Simulated scan of single mutants.
Amino acid sequence: MRRTGTTRRGVLAATGALAAGAVLPGCGSDADDTGGARKGSAHGGARTAADGTSSVRTQTALRTSASRTTATLLAGYEHVLRTHPSTAAGLTPLRDAVRAHLTAVSPGKAPALAPARSLATGPAAAVKELAAAERTAADAYTALVLEAPGELARLLASVAAASAAHAYLLTELAKETSA
């Protein structure tokens, strides 16, 4: 009988695909980076400078979007830990990792955490909600990777892979958590 749901093989395949997606956009020639202009030309230099300013705005916007996603996720962890203290052993390490992700992706000061709401009545259901939130966050980070330049793309791919792994771990934890 075939097992359904998330498997280690699926998580590893997704992680590998994300890593490849982060590395491949960095591959290219110098002519591609300057829009086809040669390095020494004045037009190529002006275009590179303009792209640099645009890139800073893009990076800030991407980091802001990622930090909002991460702050929402962190607020969810905080809410579940407050509401269901019995889940602390399994959730605390994951919450700490999400807090580190927030620090890494924030463009400056980390955003304030908004109060989180949960429809879950028991700890297992609350952990399942967190797993779903992690999957949603992984999808959001993956979408941002496509727009991000170099190092930021690698950071976002790493955070997306971590979110996918967290979703798997939370799904397994929900099975073990008593209702």
Rank of each mutant, 00 (worst) to 15 (best):
R9H: 14
H101V: 03
L24V: 14
A167E: 02
L130C: 06
R47W: 04
K175M: 12
A179T: 10
A19K: 06
A20L: 14
T60L: 11
M1I: 09
R82K: 12
R38C: 08
R68D: 13
R117W: 05
T7D: 02
T70G: 03
A22I: 02
A50K: 06
A61S: 12
T103A: 14
A160L: 05
A89R: 15
A167R: 00
L173V: 07
V159N: 00
H84R: 04
A174Q: 06
T121H: 13
A97G: 06
R63G: 02
A110P: 09
A132C: 05
A46P: 08
A49Y: 11
A19S: 12
V145K: 01
G52R: 13
S86C: 13
A88C: 07
A31E: 04
S55D: 14
L18M: 08
A50V: 13
T48L: 09
L12W: 06
A179K: 12
Y77K: 01
T103I: 07
G10H: 09
A61D: 08
D139W: 08
P111D: 07
R135H: 13
L91K: 06
D32F: 03
S54A: 11
T142F: 03
H79T: 09
D51G: 05
A148E: 00
A50Y: 10
T177G: 08
A71V: 03
S86E: 15
A137P: 03
A140E: 05
L146D: 04
L102N: 07
E151L: 14
A162W: 03
A138V: 05
E172N: 11
A179V: 11
A20S: 15
A126T: 05
A179Y: 12
S54R: 15
S118A: 09
A161C: 06
T48P: 00
G52S: 14
A153N: 03
R3F: 13
V159Y: 00
